[in-house]
Design a protein around this nucleic acid. Structure first.
Lengths: 144, 144
DNA sequence: CAAATACCCTACTAAGTTTATAGAGTGTAT
DNA sequence: ATACACTCTATAAACTTAGTAGGGTATTTG
């Protein structure tokens, strides 16, 4: 399951994308609108800033804003940032690769292939799920 | 990531399937061969028994054995048994359905669709990954 | 029947992770 | 100068995971 951090991050990103033209948005504004604990959201937005997804401005009129285009922000990257590797086994991840400690012989491991397929399918779908598409989908659903 | 419980369960099942014709296998035998803490494995095998996958016999000459055919035991079921729902969001699971508490309106949620696709793809792949196929794959790799 | 065998069950503990909260610090605009 | 709003460090409560302890129960064998 996704952690709350990842879910909050996604909701915050959607909010920021929807209000992009309003300039910097206060943490408090997002926190209230999305019902996210203020201090918790602070840490989340900071992570997204260090990641290069968001920018921030201090002082009056300050707040957070999207740096990347909504078409460049995808669910796979957000998930990785907050919850780590997407794969179910450490031996089938690309960037966080580690041997499975329970595994006697990785070369002849019968389950690796299935979990590698799962990983690849998951990454493909989540990479394609960009902020732009997510918001387009919400708007489409709202119109009905 | 898969829990150790789920990984241990998979390894124990593979072991049991490979030694199927030997009759009941001792917990200790599996524990030593697969390097799983004895008491921990006990609990795991008991869960698999309650689930209907394994049978057991008490007393001398006792132990655990597969009840289902290796072609009927798949990774999706094992994962669900030990780690719960496969989906990343509670609102896209079939049997453990719950609303996402962070979600304001499920009907217009823009991310549900992507995570539903992920769930469906994952379940499909893991359902197809049966004990029979996993073992066949190991044997194929060993021959090379 | 008795004793050994081996699974069954309940409770507990240690460690790690997640989900926060508190409060002081730093930079910015007016 | 001062209010504003993000930044950083530390801490704590709740929950989950992984593993341990110890006795209970059923079955086989002599």
């Amino acid at each position: 399951m996704l952690s709350k951090k990842a879910k909050y991050a996604i909701h915050a990103l959607i909010f920021l994308a929807k209000h992009q033209e309003q300039g910097p948005i206060l943490i408090s504004t997002i926190a209230e609108s999305e019902r996210i604990p203020h201090k918790f959201l602070e840490a989340i937005l900071l992570d997204l800033k260090k990641d290069g997804t968001l920018g921030s401005k201090k002082g009056k009129g300050g707040g957070y804003y999207l740096i990347k285009k909504p078409s460049q922000v995808n669910m796979a990257d957000v998930m990785r940032l907050f919850d780590g590797a997407i794969a179910f086994l450490p031996c089938v991840t690309h960037r966080y690769y580690e041997r499975c400690e329970e595994c006697k012989d990785e070369e002849t491991c019968g389950i690796r292939d299935a979990f590698l397929q799962v990983r690849n399918a998951t990454v493909e779908i989540l990479k394609a799920s960009t902020l732009e598409k997510v918001i387009a989908r919400e708007n489409r659903l709202l119109e009905k």
